[in-house]
Nucleic acid binder design. Sequence first.
DNA 1: TAGTGGTCTAGACCACGTG
DNA 2: ACGTGGTCTAGACCACTAT
Lengths: 284, 284
Amino acid sequence: MSSLPTSLTAAAANGTPESGAPLSGAGTQSPSNTPGASVAPAGVSPSPTFSPLYQQIKALIMQSLQTGEWKPGEMIPSEMDLAARYKVSQGTVRKAIDELAADNLVARRQGKGTFVTTHYEDVVKFRFLRLVPDEGEPHYGASRVLECKRLRAPAEIARLLDIRTGDSVVQIRRVLTFSNEATVLDEIWLLGANFKGLTAEKLNEWKGPMYALFEAEFGTRMIRASEKIRAVAADDTAAELLSVEPGSPLLSVERVSFTYGDRPVEVRRGLYVTTRHYYQNDLS
Amino acid sequence: MSSLPTSLTAAAANGTPESGAPLSGAGTQSPSNTPGASVAPAGVSPSPTFSPLYQQIKALIMQSLQTGEWKPGEMIPSEMDLAARYKVSQGTVRKAIDELAADNLVARRQGKGTFVTTHYEDVVKFRFLRLVPDEGEPHYGASRVLECKRLRAPAEIARLLDIRTGDSVVQIRRVLTFSNEATVLDEIWLLGANFKGLTAEKLNEWKGPMYALFEAEFGTRMIRASEKIRAVAADDTAAELLSVEPGSPLLSVERVSFTYGDRPVEVRRGLYVTTRHYYQNDLS
DNA sequence: TAGTGGTCTAGACCACGTG
DNA sequence: ACGTGGTCTAGACCACTAT
């Protein structure tokens, strides 16, 4: 890792960190407000794997988010400041931030600034827990952790986490209770390397979303997730923990969550009781 | 309904059709490329329910989509043409189209133009059928229509469709088969007013997505949908039609689909067999 | 009053697709 | 060669929030 690039020209000289794509001639235009007086064709690089400037800026900003230069909840520099830092126009920074906002990595607040999003605020937004009660408002229930231990990854989990079978993982089992009814049984596997020191006590002490704990204590932010949903019959263990009859239909939700760079860090297998709740999904 | 407004000034005079929001002073700026020479404060309307220009343009374009001025699959006028038509800058039109593209109402194709999206292409994109096989590529299966009849809306359906109990609706029942296995049992209710002349024969003759038929033959485009998902036990009827044991767990998907203006036009209750398929969902 | 994001414009140039 | 969407810039002004 070389030092953090602070201006685009530096980045261009080094090549952008991950994709290795060169600056590719974009931005070499002569703005020249006076019309008709265009100058300097400067036809350097025609277009080998062209990447827009704003995408490069987006990548640089994302890098600063990942390294923790701006932490969840904090304000990032203003558009003008970033434009100066990267030596591009404010409009280009704007477009980069637009995409970051669309990806839910940052949130803009008019008159105040642009802020790094937090899973703590997501209590309101319910990005990751899509279980909604038939009546009443969505809410987070009480979490009871049954188990939290380190072990070696079984083959299937290792495959999903993109690690080797036998690598260290943390396994958590827990029950979520809504209005005094056991509703969700979760079995969670986390990348061992990222969650050293995670214990059942820490989990039980924590009030609020589990992902908020992960981002605050372990510096691991869940950015996106992919879920596979099925209907299954409750086995004896699940039936007992969820207080339903064995064989009852349960919603099975297998989730893989990703951090920056689309690296998988969590596998979560949830069993949901859907007699008084449903899984909400919007297609558009 | 007055005549179709073709320029923004006309729209401003009439007020925008739905929200009734006035032009609200936006766009009354003096561009004046020569710096320092700003003119004409023209302080008319301060900001009573301010609506950005590009949103008004977006609404006007959406209107033309709704009225069928540009039909699914067709190209809409170029950004420059639309800019001239609405008397705004190309950048403002661009931002309006950006949002329409984000909403999947149109699709941009560089070098060619901007096209009204079609449910027929969605075969590739699988916006609305999220059932994926454990192995192999997603694909549409064979549809067998069991029933297609007009009847009076029961209370529950009427509520979801925002009509009165007893109003005319079309009910369809069908089975979807993937690789020779009955997988989906659908019960569909459509707004009677929009689907006059829909018969089981028409449905059975049609190859391709049902929504493509709806948009091509009945001029009703599904824009977005909202789904409530549960796990349920198969009753005797469902069990027989889907060739599973009574009591088997099935995925229950209750969907309400909306056209332009967020008007509900379809209620669909699906029962999915999820032994060899799963419902795919991405959170972000 | 000052600072931030949000809107609007206008012009130049690039990349893509099709003649 | 031409037209379309895509990128980039620069400047002016509006709307919101805090001080």
